[in-house]
Each structure stands twice: as structure tokens, then as C-alpha cells.
Amino acid sequence: MTTAAPLEVRSLTKHFAVRSAFRRTHVHAVDDVSFDLRHGTITALVGESGSGKSTVARLLAHLFEPSDGAVIFEGVDVSRVRRRQDVLRYRSQVQMIFQDPFASLNPVKTIRHHVERPLRIHGIVPPAQIEERVHELLRTVGLVPPQDIAAKYPHELSGGQRQRVAIARALAVEPRVVLADEPISMLDVSIRIGILNLMLKLKEERRIAFLYVTHDLASARYVADDILVMYAGQIVERGPIEQVLSEPLHPYTRLLLAAVPDPATKLRAQRIEARKGRASAAVDPQEGCRFVTRCPLAIDVCSRVTPELVEAQPQQAARCHVTAPAPSS
């Protein structure tokens, strides 16, 4: 089945200049990142903190302007639109859900206010129908009875309920794309699954294209169809999630998988050798693979030549000289 891609990301790049007392460095937070988000598909974007995954989500939400590259929404490059009207129109189609449901709601406003505001601003329904639509949205995200919930303030709700409010608010404008930045990492374990199931339901019923940003591979496997693995600003592996997690190509993906707690095995005691202070590989990167200093498979070429993203398996690509060598070499 071919699904149209409402959002195409092409060579997206974001560099931040960091000035210190003596020198000026550039953090390559996002470097030449390309992927598609398709209707009715959840794409997981995983990586460690500082890998640039949240920056990608924020670039797509138009919270920053990229240094280079394009974000193509339904055929139009929206990465540099500036007119308020155009930005608003884009944001009504591409919504974001943030990590912290405690910080993303206004504590002095009721839940009704949060959900009806986008309906008014974007003129989604006639004013007479707003009340009804608010209740419908709250029911959609599993907040019942909606009349009671709508009258409450954020502090009266649990973390999971608050995150559901944030999702209802995002859905109010009937978006085609939802960017979810670590939406469950601050929630209690027992209610995380509920939010993930809600994402699955919305993907199926509303054909929403989701970008699910997370560092948790297990939850990514539970909801996502495709996976993008980021390391030091670059995508180092991408492909169908089941395939990537069962046969990972990139050594970093393998490292991530090995680090996930596995109840079936006991942790091995291990002394960690002192690492000499090393700046992140995304700061003023040199030619060569950015993972080379941590890589168990590194060979000579790795520190000299930057690997390209090579499709070594059908639909599965990795940026590695060893496991996904370029066809010519």
C-alpha cells in the first residue's frame, strides 16, 4: 500500500553557534536529515539526549528556522514561511505535543478554555457548536464525562489526564501531522500504555501522520511502523521498525538495544574506564564517522571518511562503513 506523504523533510540542517570566552563553536544539532511522514503511519525518532531528535521536532513545528534544507508540506516548502497567516495555516495542520503536561497547560484556565481556544482561533466550527465539539474531543481522548472534565483546572487532573488534554487540544484543529516529543516519559508507568494506545487509535481512525520522538525503544516498537535512529545530529539508521530492531545494522542501534533493561537477564557488574573529556561529536564535527570513538567495529576508514546513509537491506539504510558499505567500495 502506498500512502501519500504529507510531510517531506529534505536535507534538514540546523547549526547553533555557541560562543565561549575564547572561541566560537558550531553545534551541528541536525545535519542533513531527510525522511517522510506518511498518513496513518507512526514514525519513531529515537536517540540519546543531545542527539538532535527534539530539534528535528521543533524545526518541523516551525519553532525554529532551519539553517539549510526544506520541510515540504503537501508539496510546498514551508521551512521559510514568515507571514503570520501562512504560519498559522501550517500550524493548524501540524500540531505538537510536548513532554511535560504540567508545563504545557495554563494553570489558571479551565480545560474547556484550552480545548476551545484553537477552535476559535482557527475558526474550525461555528461558535454555536464549540461546546459540543469540545465535549466530543474530550471523549475522543478518553476523558469522560466531558462536562465535568471541561470545568476542571489543570491541577485537578493527573499527569496522564493532562497529557490527554494536550492531545485533545492538538486534535481540535484537525491536523494532518502530529509531532509528539517524548509524550509519555514524564508519566507514570501504568498510564503510559493508555497514551500509546490513544496514538494508535488516532493513527487508524484519523489517518494522522505521527512523529514519535523518544529514547525508549520498547515503546517505539509498540506504536511505530518506521524508525529513525539519530546520533550526533545525523540519522544513522532508518527502516521498518520490526526489521531494524530484529536485525540492526548500525553499531549505535545495537548499543541502544543492548542497553534496554531485560528482565530475563541479570545485570553484569562492570567497571567503566575513565574516559578522557571529549566534546560531543556534534560540536564542530570533523570528517569521519561521528560514532567512531565509541564504535566496537571501527576500521581505518571510519575516522577519515564520513559514511553515507546506504540502503544495505530492502527499505533499511544505515550510515556505517562496516555494516552498510557503499556499493562502489
Partner: peptide, 11 residues
């Protein structure tokens, strides 16, 4: 993140 978490626990 998980990689650092694992290293610390092993330690």
C-alpha cells in the same frame, strides 16, 4: 538515557 543508565548501574 539508557546507555549511560546501564553503564552507571553496572558500575
Amino acid at each position: 538515557d539508557v546507555v549511560v543508565q546501564r553503564e552507571i548501574l553496572q558500575q
